[in-house]
Write a protein that binds this DNA or RNA. Structure first.
Lengths: 325, 325
DNA sequence: GATATTTACGTCCGCCGTAACTATT
DNA sequence: AATAGTTACGGCGGACGTAAATATC
């Protein structure tokens, strides 16, 4: 019997006996969870779950008792970890983050909610700004982590950990002609006024260049610094919006239609950076992993100890980053 | 954090912070325990034990709290296992063993004491007899396990698992001339009357042949079936006893002197046998492992599934058996 | 056909044991 | 010298992920 098996068991129960969902929550593969459950049941010698064919349907009476004890065990394990945090003074402390609107508004809220559950006494400081402002905060040592998209060249003194990649989505009001098209093209976009971020004015991924490659000049109706402003003006019918995919909330934005545009614009990479050689407190490692599950303590330490930026990159060549599309 | 680490931690505490003793109790290596402890402490980020140089001296206050929780966890784990036993009906059942005097009198008592702690409701039947009688019990399916020394040829229908090897010791009253000799030789033995088991009368390991190789005829004063009888007559001064090393109890036999004779007589191998294909209950696996720690469930299963006796042997070629000397 | 789970298989990490070394009595 | 613990290292089992098969709806 291993703790891992008990964790998997608890996750399966948490996810209503759906092994696939449990595996996702655990950031591992579904066959792995399936196998560990089977091993546990084999070791115990009786089934924890009833099955209909291959689907788990119910918990057996004996299984219920195992689950209760497993949860008790996991709680004790947690309690040991808490204890360790207190001991190290890790329950207290502070975490200062510099980041952009998109991350602060759409990605970090969930991360921070889970972080606060785990570390209610860590002081959190969130500083929003442009890439340049964030770089400045980092240079002045005002922040522990910089979280930004692109602009790596501004942060040469930081260790940059790739977190996830994301695409843009096209946003239109319900009933807009584009909403009923299959795959949107640059040509189709060119027919409507555009409401979007301040795309770079030069460089191969600037809005101008991308349209120019199709021989089209975009009609930019409005450029904003953040997606909320963009969505607001799309709602007012000022034009077709182009926003980060994370900025679309299925519930809040149910009055809008958003369309995959991953084939039109290149993907963006969001990364988290910290000063090389900085001593990370354990809650900082945990924060990073909440932000991007592949950022294990191991990996972060290796990156922090890497000699050159290209050594850091090498660590991530085999890692598949999450993609928001 | 792994359950293994918590088990090791508990064992260290149980053994008064002596890592070596803990490792022995756990039937594993000392460096392994040492390393796991260090890993646990590293993960927690603070020491569980205080050290003077390399020796563990005391438990830190925080360590105490970790230990308490670890013990709670291990208790819950135990409770899950008990639950599994009940579920399978393994708390109840019976275990019938056929064995010889030496095992029944000197080896099994400790094994059975620990077994009863774990399985108070399993009915135990211990049948003492000669090898032939045990073979007969096995043939009639009266016993689950046969435990015997040598005589493999009588048990060709059983899967035989080597348990341990043992040597004979020479037993004399205090003050006997042999007690003050360094290394006893066959020649020296030849000068005294011998009190021993019924050695085989033919075969290369018979008492006669071994003495004959040195050109000596032993003066056998008495042959008995068991060590208790032999020790009784040694106490009466009838001669020099030769008994199994396990038969000597430091406390009970403090009035006798026993001398290593492993260089004079070949080692004996005690094995445990069961019918090939028999379905072993989990308490039976546990019994075997209490008898001989290397008999893990894995190994026993493999032996039970082996096609031929030589396949079984092959499983044990790399296993180092305990030796009583 | 789509979804969910198991089976099969290859890779790689980490546990364990041996041996050598170091510290302590 | 003997005892206790750590470091170093090789072997091997087992966990994990990918891919394919299978069952269920």
């Amino acid at each position: 019997m291993k703790l891992q098996q008990l964790r998997y068991l608890a996750a399966i129960v948490e996810n209503d006996l759906n092994i696939t969902a449990a595996a996702e929550r655990l950031h591992t593969s579904q066959p792995g969870v399936s196998k560990q459950l089977k091993q546990l049941e084999d070791e115990l010698g009786f089934p924890i779950f009833l099955r209909q064919g291959r689907t788990l349907t119910r918990v057996t009476p004996a299984g219920k008792r195992v689950i209760d004890r497993a949860q008790k065990i996991l709680k004790e394990v947690q309690s040991i970890k808490r204890l360790a945090d207190e001991q190290k003074g890790d329950g207290r402390g502070s975490l200062a983050i510099g980041t952009t609107h998109t991350q602060a508004r759409y990605v970090l809220p969930q991360v921070i909610r889970r972080f606060r559950e785990r570390y209610p006494d860590v002081e959190l400081h969130l500083h929003q700004g442009t890439s340049e402002q964030i770089a400045d905060m980092a240079a002045r040592d005002r922040i522990d982590f910089a979280i930004n998209t692109g602009s790596q060249e501004l942060f040469t003194n930081l260790v940059l950990l790739p977190c996830y990649r994301w695409h843009r989505r096209i946003v239109v009001p319900q009933g807009h002609p584009l909403a009923s098209e299959g795959k949107v093209t640059i040509e189709m976009l060119g027919k409507y006024p555009i409401v979007t971020y301040v795309f770079g004015f030069s460089g191969p991924s600037s809005l101008q260049q991308i349209f120019a490659r199709h021989g089209i000049t975009p009609q930019v109706a409005l450029t904003a610094r953040d997606a909320d402003v963009i969505k607001t003006y799309v709602r007012l019918g000022m034009g077709v919006g182009i926003v980060a995919s994370m900025a679309m909330d299925p519930r809040e934005d149910s009055d809008l239609v958003s369309i995959d545009a991953s084939h039109l614009f290149p993907a963006h990479s969001t990364w988290a950076g910290f000063h090389q050689g900085a001593l990370l407190r354990s809650y900082m490692y945990d924060f990073l992993q909440l932000l991007a599950p592949h950022l294990t303590r191991r990996l972060v330490d290796r990156a922090g100890n890497a000699a050159t930026p290209s050594d850091v990159e090498a660590l991530f060549t085999d890692v598949e980053l999450p993609v928001y599309r």
